[in-house]
Structure formats: structure tokens, C-alpha cells
């Protein structure tokens, strides 16, 4: 096949490289006169983590919305699991979204539903699973994030950290292979934030979920990048990651709609760029 007509996914397959689960190819977006993203490109490999940093309003959250198809780009293309999604209709997108979980800023839990109903929402409403199977899966997921006593609570009765964890549970309940986190730890105290970080790490390393994290909380970004979850006799443990594992988490810094840095945690720390230094200080 002519390389010019190949999609980035086909190109990767042709080169014998592991096919990326997510590709953004020169994606641009503007709201009226305000340019949010200018030809932004990146790829995400299975089981890897992409951490998108940037100041407020730098277009980080917009990027996640583009990936899920909640927004359409003005230019460029987006591939999820090898399928081009930016040209799909809302109906076609519904199928792609079966493999995409998104954790929204502040959780976006349905406040008229209980925790269990929130977590099992997709399984109850959009799948053929029986009620018993759904209940079982919901319990399993709530157990995974350590909230099994909260099944019948309403979202309004939960603390900020609990809401985020329920949001993660809701996004992972239908076992998507890609999870997108929009500021999952913003506004949380450091201890609760670490709990949320550990859930993200566990999902990535135990369930082999590929993740895109959008955040401006550097502490959490570095924590997620430099830790790994392992299963041992006592259950699941989170520990400092090997260098090889740390390299699987890649940082991406957005500034004025452009990517101004791309690299791993060590490279980010060592960067001499004045803007990055201000951000890191």
C-alpha cells in the first residue's frame, strides 16, 4: 500500500510495531477566533500512559473530548483502535465509545442515581447483561476501588475524593481498554489524591488499560508515571516503578495550542526550557 494513503495505525502495523490504541494526527480546533489546538499529534501504545500537562485553558480537556467524539476537530484526524473517529456520526461513535472510558472533571456522576446505578449505568442501559451479572460486576468494581460500603448512597452524600473514585469505577465497569482522566485529582487533598492515583496505576498495570491523564497537578502526574502496581501474595501493591516501566509513561506539555514538550519524567525534570521550569517550580 502506498505510504501516503496509509493511516498512522496501518503504517505502524506495516513496520511491525505494536499498533497504537490512540492516534491524534495534526488535530486542530478553534472556538470562534480562539485557537485551542494547532496541529497536535501524538500516539498512545497499549498499556502505556500519556500525561498531558498544561495551564488552565490550554486545551487539555478539549483534547479528551475530541478523543471521545464529544467535539469534532476542525482539521486533522483521530484514530481509536485503528478506526478513524473524527468523521463518524454520533451513532457510529457509540460503538467506538464501548472501548473508551472517560472520567470527567468533578466526576459528572448522575445525581438522581445511586452509586451502584451510576457504576452499572452502561451495563444496565446499554448492554444485554442480566441484572444479576451487572450487580456482580458493580460489586467487583466497587471492591476494586474500595467503596463497597457505598453501594446505595447518593452522589450528594459522597466526599470529593469518593466521587472521583466512583467516576473511575463507572468508567471502568464495562472494561474499556482505554481510559481518559480529566483532572481526576484536582481539588483533592494530597492523601486522597494519592488514593486516586493508585487506582489509576492499578487499572493500568493490573487490568492493562491504556490511559490518557490530563492534569496540572504535577505531584500526581509524577506519582502515576514513576509507580507501578504489582500483584503479590498480599494482594495488589503499588511500588516505585522500574526505569523501563517509567518510560511507558510519556509527558506532553501544551502551551498556546501547541505541544511544547514531549518526553518521559526524567527528561521533563531535566528540561532547561524556562516555561517548563516555571511550571515545574
Amino acid at each position: 500500500m502506498d505510504t501516503l494513503t496509509q493511516s498512522p495505525v496501518q503504517a505502524a502495523a506495516a513496520q511491525g510495531v505494536e499498533a497504537p490504541v490512540l492516534v491524534l494526527d495534526k488535530v486542530s480546533l478553534a472556538f470562534d477566533d480562539k485557537v485551542v489546538l494547532r496541529e497536535v499529534s501524538f500516539t498512545l501504545l497499549p498499556g502505556h500512559t500519556k500525561i498531558i500537562l498544561g495551564a488552565s485553558g490550554s486545551g487539555k480537556s478539549v483534547m479528551l473530548k475530541l478523543i471521545v467524539g464529544l467535539l469534532k476537530p476542525d482539521g486533522g484526524s483521530i484514530y481509536v483502535n485503528g478506526e478513524r473517529t473524527d468523521t463518524m456520526s454520533e451513532r457510529e461513535l457509540m460503538k467506538v465509545r464501548a472501548d473508551l472510558g472517560m472520567v470527567f472533571q468533578e466526576g459528572a456522576l448522575f445525581d438522581s442515581l445511586t452509586v451502584a446505578e451510576n457504576v452499572g449505568y452502561k451495563l444496565y442501559e446499554e448492554s444485554d447483561m442480566s441484572e444479576d451479572q451487572v450487580r456482580q460486576r458493580v460489586e467487583e468494581v466497587l471492591g476494586f476501588i474500595g467503596l463497597h460500603d457505598f453501594t446505595d448512597r447518593m452522589p450528594s452524600e459522597l466526599s470529593g475524593g469518593q466521587r472521583r473514585r466512583v467516576a473511575i469505577a463507572r468508567a471502568m465497569a464495562f472494561k474499556p481498554r482505554i481510559l481518559l482522566y480529566d483532572e481526576a485529582t484536582t481539588g483533592l487533598d494530597p492523601i486522597t489524591a494519592t488514593t486516586v492515583d493508585e487506582e489509576i496505576i492499578k487499572l493500568r498495570d493490573i487490568e492493562n488499560v491504556s490511559s490518557v491523564l490530563v492534569t496540572h497537578q504535577l505531584r500526581d502526574a509524577f506519582y502515576t508515571a514513576t509507580h507501578e502496581a504489582v500483584r503479590d501474595t498480599g494482594g495488589i501493591r503499588v511500588q516505585a516503578a522500574s526505569d523501563e516501566k517509567s518510560d511507558e509513561a510519556e509527558f506532553l506539555m501544551l502551551r498556546d495550542g501547541l505541544i511544547c514538550f514531549e518526553g518521559n519524567a526524567a527528561e521533563l525534570r531535566a528540561s532547561k526550557d524556562p516555561y517548563l521550569k516555571t511550571f515545574l517550580s
Binding site: 473530548k65 471521545v68 467524539g69 464529544l70 454520533e90 457509540m94 465509545r97 464501548a98 473508551l100 472510558g101 472517560m102 470527567f104 472533571q105 468533578e106 459528572a108 456522576l109 448522575f110 445525581d111 449505568y121 452502561k122 442501559e125 446499554e126 463507572r170
Partner: peptide, 18 residues
């Protein structure tokens, strides 16, 4: 305004139908 509509769409539900 609390992103619940977007969450519905992301979970594969058409807000018009629901």
C-alpha cells in the same frame, strides 16, 4: 453544566433518546 450530558454520551447513550 455539570458535564452529565457529556458523560451520558461518553457512556454510549443518546441524550435525546434518554
Amino acid at each position: 453544566v455539570t458535564d452529565q450530558i457529556n458523560a451520558l454520551r461518553a457512556l454510549g447513550t443518546d441524550p435525546v433518546r434518554k
